[in-house]
Design a protein around this nucleic acid. Structure first.
Lengths: 129, 129
DNA sequence: CCTTGACCTTCCAGTAACAGGAACCCCTAT
DNA sequence: ATAGGGGTTCCTGTTACTGGAAGGTCAAGG
């Protein structure tokens, strides 16, 4: 299967698939004309990668997860550790974003948003002398 | 004031301050020896920038906000629009992160995390045939 | 006077994960 | 023969810095 069709099936842009090959996440065969030829296994991997990336795992996490996925003798603890660390990262980002949201939404709500210059948003960014 | 002291006062790394000068967010004077000399106004701006960045505004947003901040004839609507758009971005990221968190925490909770290979996390990333 | 150490300077490279675009090849249909 | 819609590689740019090398400056101590 060519890259265009593979992109459709996996939902990944062709550019991304080429990039994944470049960084050795996948290694599709080549046809005589130089076109990439994706196997079922390649599709499988790409779909796996697409899901892991959608869950926010880094590429390096994905590399490790992919290796564990293919190693049927893995210990689930290894997978759980990676996922757990990522979960902690997500939780931290959530906390930060929620704090930003609280502050910013208060500021935005308090701003008239008209043609006058008075602006509580800028005031909120102003150094408290 | 030299850059080291300025860094302490603003909480920004010296590297970051140099970078802000490079992209023309600030323009401190130079002493005869070539050292940057930060004025009170520079400190003010840097603190403003630090707060805006902490709220997640992009550098380009900061550039605009800084210009509005210094323009006493601004319309608060201009500020509110930028902040509102950023708020929407934050809300979208929050939604995405919450979805990731829900999925991933379920998967992590269901994984034994021992030395056996069975792993619901990997299963969850597996393409549904 | 010399050295040591803490500053400061510029410049170059690298980060994460691609996206955009140029220049060019391949295949099929008209 | 040509037009189009694939495909290929290679190079650059993105965001907001961070790390490090090579070297200038300054105050204090021996």
């Amino acid at each position: 299967m060519n890259i265009g069709q593979t992109a459709k099936q996996t939902g990944l842009p062709a550019k991304t698939i080429r990039y994944y090959e470049e960084i050795d996440l996948i290694a599709p065969h080549r046809d005589a004309n130089g076109y990439r030829a994706f196997s079922e296994a390649d599709l499988h991997k790409l779909t796996f990668l697409a899901r892991a990336r959608a869950l926010g795992f880094t590429i390096e996490d994905c590399r490790t997860l992919l290796a564990l996925w293919e190693d049927t003798t893995r210990a689930s603890a290894d997978v759980k550790r990676i996922a757990g660390e990522h979960l902690a990262t997500i939780e931290q980002k959530l906390t930060e974003l929620q704090a930003m949201h609280a502050t910013l939404s208060t500021l935005v709500a308090s701003c008239a948003g008209d043609d006058r210059p008075e602006c509580p948003i800028l005031d909120g960014l102003e150094p408290l002398t």
